[in-house]
Design a protein around this nucleic acid. Structure first.
Lengths: 232, 232
DNA sequence: GCGACGCTTCGGCCACCGCCGAACCATTTC
DNA sequence: GAAATGGTTCGGCGGTGGCCGAAGCGTCGC
C-alpha cells in the first residue's frame, strides 16, 4: 500500500507553482523544450532545469535529448490520467474564473481541447456520443470499439490496422471530462482519432495551449462521417 | 480550468509526510481526534494542531468539536475518492514492501479493508461480484442497483428505504481497487452495506487501521445471503 | 474548586527549497 | 574558427515551513 512518504514525495512534485504549471502545460501531450517551459512559466532557464530534473527523477516526465535541445513530456497516459483526475477533483469545488480574458480562454477550453493525446471538451464528448450512436463504440460495458468501429478507423479514417492492435494500453477507454462531466473517448483509439483530425486539419490548435477549434473542413467531415450536426 | 496555483496549493497539503500520513489514516472513513493523529504520526500535539488547521482550511478535512475533543475526518466521498485515485496511481509503479511485518499487514489489507466508508480488497470485490451474479447489481452500463438489489437492501439487510433515496451522492458507484485492479461497490449503497456488515459483526476491524476481517458469522451470512463460497 | 486532560497559541530554531546571475559546456550557424 | 544559441552547474540569498517546548485555555472528573 502507499506509504505516507511515497504520497508526500509524489505530491511535493506538484506542490510548487512552477512545476504545477509545467505539468499542466504538458497535459497537451506534446513534447516541450526546456526553454519553452522556462518562458511559459516565466522563470530563468536555470530554474527550469532544476524543476525538470526533479520531475524526471520523480517519474512524472520523460526526456529526449536531441541536438542542443532537451525535450520533455509526460511519462505516459497513466500520469496524464492521474493529473486529469486531480485537476478535475480540485475543480469540483473551485470558483468560476475572474476576468474577461480568463473567461474567454475558459470558454475555448470548454468547447474543445486536447486531453493529453485525445479530444476532450464539448467537441470530444460530441464525437464520442456520435460514435456511440452510429454503433462504432459500445459504452454499455465500459468503453469498447465495435467491429464496425474498428473498420471505421481503418477504412474511413485510414488508420493503419497495426496501430490499433491491443497492447499494454487499452484500445478504448473512457476519460471523465472535467467541464462536461461526461465521458469521452481515450486510449489508443482516442489518440489515433485526435492525430487524424489534426493531420487532416479538421481541428487546429488555438495559440500555444490545449484549446482546439473545429475548422470548416472539420465541420463537414464530422457531418459526413458521423452525421454530426454542427456543434454550435 | 485548474490554475497552476490551485494545483500547487492542493498538492502542498499532501506534500508533507505527516499530513500525508494523517490523510491516509483518515481514509478509513472514521473521525479521529487530534491527539490520536498526533500519536499515530509521532509528532507533538502542537504540531498536529497546525497540520489539521491547514488541512481543514484547504478543504480536505472537516472538523467537529465535541467537549474537549476535536474530531476530524475527510471532507467527503469525493475527497476520499481523489485520495484513493492518487494512491492507486502511485502504487502503479511502487516496489513491493520490505519486511515481514509490512508483508503481513499488506496481506491483511489485500484481503479486506474499508475504503473510506465502503468495503474494498478481495472481500469487497468478492461481495460486489456475488451481488452482480445474483442480479442485484448491474455493471453493464456503469454501476447501478437493480430493482431486486434495492429490495435486497431494504428487505434482507433491513436498510431504511429513506437512506437509499438518490441524493447528491450516487447510490451505486464503482471504485477501482488498488490491490485487485477490479471495481468494487461504492456510493451510498456501498456505505450502507459496510455499515450493516459492521453492525452485525459480520466483519470486524483488525487493530486501529483500515484492515477488516470476516467473522465466522459473516462467513455464514455471506453464504446465506449471496451464495458466496468461503473466500479463502 | 481543584487537578487532570486535550488542545491551542506562541516563540524560536533549523532545514529545505525556489530563485537568480554568472560562468561554463555543447551544438549549430556563419 | 568565431559567434550565437540552448542548456547546465554552481554559489548565494531569502522566504517558507515543520518541529518542539512552554505557557495558556476550556472541559471533564472527583
Amino acid at each position: 500500500m502507499t506509504s505516507a512518504s511515497d504520497l508526500a514525495s509524489w505530491a511535493a512534485l506538484l506542490a510548487d507553482e512552477t512545476r504545477a504549471a509545467i505539468c499542466l502545460a504538458l497535459l497537451d501531450g506534446r513534447a516541450w523544450t526546456a526553454g519553452e517551459l522556462a518562458a511559459h512559466t516565466r522563470v530563468a532557464p536555470s530554474t527550469a532545469t532544476e524543476h525538470l530534473h526533479r520531475l524526471v527523477a520523480g517519474g512524472l516526465l520523460v526526456e529526449r535529448r536531441q541536438g542542443r535541445h532537451r525535450y520533455v513530456q509526460l511519462a505516459g497516459p497513466s500520469v496524464a490520467h492521474l493529473l486529469e483526475s486531480v485537476s478535475a477533483g480540485i475543480d469540483g469545488r473551485a470558483a468560476p474564473p475572474r476576468g474577461l480574458r480568463a473567461a474567454t480562454a475558459d470558454a475555448a477550453l470548454r468547447r474543445g481541447r486536447t486531453c493529453y493525446d485525445h479530444l476532450a471538451g464539448q467537441l470530444g464528448v460530441a464525437v464520442t456520443d456520435a460514435m456511440t450512436g452510429a454503433g462504432l463504440l459500445d459504452q454499455s460495458g465500459g468503453f469498447a470499439l465495435t467491429p464496425a468501429g474498428l473498420a471505421w478507423f481503418t477504412d474511413t479514417l485510414g488508420v493503419h490496422p497495426e496501430a490499433l492492435r491491443p497492447g499494454s494500453r487499452p484500445l478504448a477507454r473512457g476519460c471523465l471530462d472535467w467541464t462536461e462531466r461526461r465521458q469521452h473517448l481515450a486510449g489508443t483509439a482516442g489518440a489515433k482519432l485526435c492525430e487524424t483530425f489534426l493531420h487532416h486539419k479538421w481541428i487546429e490548435r488555438i495559440g500555444s495551449g490545449r484549446a482546439v477549434r473545429l475548422t470548416p473542413d472539420g465541420r463537414s467531415a464530422l457531418r459526413d462521417l458521423l452525421a454530426l450536426p454542427d456543434p454550435d
